[in-house]
C-alpha cells in the first residue's frame, strides 16, 4: 500500500477563545495537488500548522508521509517544505544569506533545486530582505519551500502578493512537482486558483470540512457571475430567462447581470444571434459557491 501524503482522522484543534477546527478527516494520496479552500479564518492555517506540529491536536490525529504529526514530527519536517501564511525573514539578511541559513537547518537535504528556482522566478538574492517588495519576498518563500525538492510541500496561501505572471509560473512549478510523484498541499481562499492547480479540493468552513471534491466536479457544478453588454438587451433577457442554469437575472440599461451554475455552453448557445458587445465571466465568491453546491443539503446553520 502506498503511504498517503496526508491523512487526518477526526482532527480537532480547539483554542481557548473558540475557532480552530473540528473533526476534520481527509486523505491526500501521494502524487496529488490538494487544495484547501475556505474563507479567511475558516481554519486552513490551523490545520496546516497542526501537520507540522506547530500546534497540537486537541483530539483526533494527523499523519504526514506515514508519520504521526506529534511523535514523528522531526521525520515529517525533514521530508517536507513549508511556506507559512505570513512569511517573514530576518530583514537585514540578503536573500542569499536567508536561503543559506534555512538550508543549514536541513543538513540532510541540500538545496539541489535552488539555482533553477531562483532563475525561474527571477529572485532578487543580493538585496537585504527588508528592501524587497511583498511579492519578491514571497518568491523567496517559494524557493525555500521547494529548494530541497521535498516529498511533500505544504503551502499556506502561496500566491498572496504574487503578480499574475508569477502565479502562472508557480502553478507550472506545482504541476511539475507532482508530475514527478511528489505531493503538494496548499490552501487558498480563491476558487479560481485551486481550480487552476489542484486535483482535488477540500472546502472548509467555520472549522468544518464540508466537502472534498475533484476539480472537475467543482467546475461542472460551480457558480459563475456573468455580466453581458449587448445592444439588444430585451432579446438577450428573454432567451436567458428560459434557461434553468441561469438565475438572479437583472437588467440595467443595456447591461445584464446573472449567475450561471454548471455548464456554460447553453448560455453561449442561447445568446447566438444576439449582438454581444462584451461578456465578462468570473467565479462567484466562496460563500455563493458553497450555497450553490450544497443548497438543500448539509445546512450549515
Amino acid at each position: 500500500m502506498v503511504v498517503p501524503a496526508v491523512r487526518t482522522e477526526s482532527l480537532t484543534v480547539e483554542y481557548r477563545h473558540g475557532r480552530g477546527i473540528a473533526e476534520v478527516s481527509l486523505e491526500v494520496p501521494a502524487g496529488e495537488v490538494f487544495g484547501f479552500l475556505g474563507p479567511n479564518g475558516a481554519g486552513k492555517t490551523t490545520a496546516i500548522r497542526t501537520l507540522l506540529d506547530l500546534l497540537r491536536p486537541t483530539s483526533g490525529r494527523a499523519e504526514v508521509l506515514g508519520h504521526d504529526s506529534v511523535s514523528g514530527s522531526l521525520e515529517i519536517r525533514r521530508r517536507t517544505g513549508y511556506l507559512p501564511g505570513e512569511f517573514a525573514l530576518p530583514g537585514q539578511l540578503t536573500g542569499r544569506q536567508a536561503l543559506d541559513w534555512l538550508s543549514s537547518l536541513r543538513p540532510d537535504s541540500p538545496p539541489i533545486r535552488r539555482d533553477e528556482l531562483v532563475e525561474r522566478f527571477s529572485v532578487e538574492l543580493d538585496r537585504p530582505v527588508r528592501q524587497l517588495s511583498k511579492g519578491n519576498r514571497q518568491k523567496l518563500g517559494l524557493v525555500q519551500a521547494f529548494q530541497h525538492d521535498p516529498e511533500l510541500v505544504i503551502l499556506d496561501e502561496p500566491t498572496s502578493g504574487l503578480d499574475p505572471l508569477v502565479q502562472d509560473e508557480f502553478h507550472r512549478l506545482v504541476r511539475a512537482h507532482v508530475g514527478r510523484g511528489r505531493s503538494v498541499f496548499l490552501s487558498s481562499h480563491s476558487l479560481d486558483e485551486v481550480q487552476h492547480v489542484a486535483d482535488r479540493v477540500g472546502i472548509i468552513r467555520e472549522g468544518h470540512l464540508v466537502a472534498v471534491e475533484t476539480v472537475e466536479v467543482l467546475r461542472s457544478r460551480g457558480l459563475r457571475r456573468v455580466t453581458l453588454l449587448t445592444t439588444d438587451p430585451t432579446a438577450a433577457e428573454a432567451r436567458l430567462s428560459t434557461l434553468d442554469s441561469v438565475s438572479e437575472l437583472s437588467r440595467r440599461g443595456d447591461r445584464l447581470d446573472f449567475a450561471v451554475s454548471g455548464a456554460f455552453d447553453p448560455v453561449i448557445a442561447a445568446l447566438s444571434g444576439v449582438p454581444v458587445v462584451d461578456l465578462l465571466s468570473r467565479a462567484a465568491d466562496l460563500d455563493e459557491v458553497f450555497l450553490a453546491l450544497y443548497r438543500g443539503q448539509a445546512d450549515p446553520s
Binding site: L54, L74, F87, A88, R106
Partner: peptide, 14 residues
C-alpha cells in the same frame, strides 16, 4: 512575534 519561529520550527529542528 516576528513570525520567524514558525519558519525555523518547520525545519527538522527540535
Amino acid at each position: 512575534e516576528r513570525g520567524l519561529l514558525d519558519l525555523v520550527l518547520s525545519h527538522p529542528v527540535r
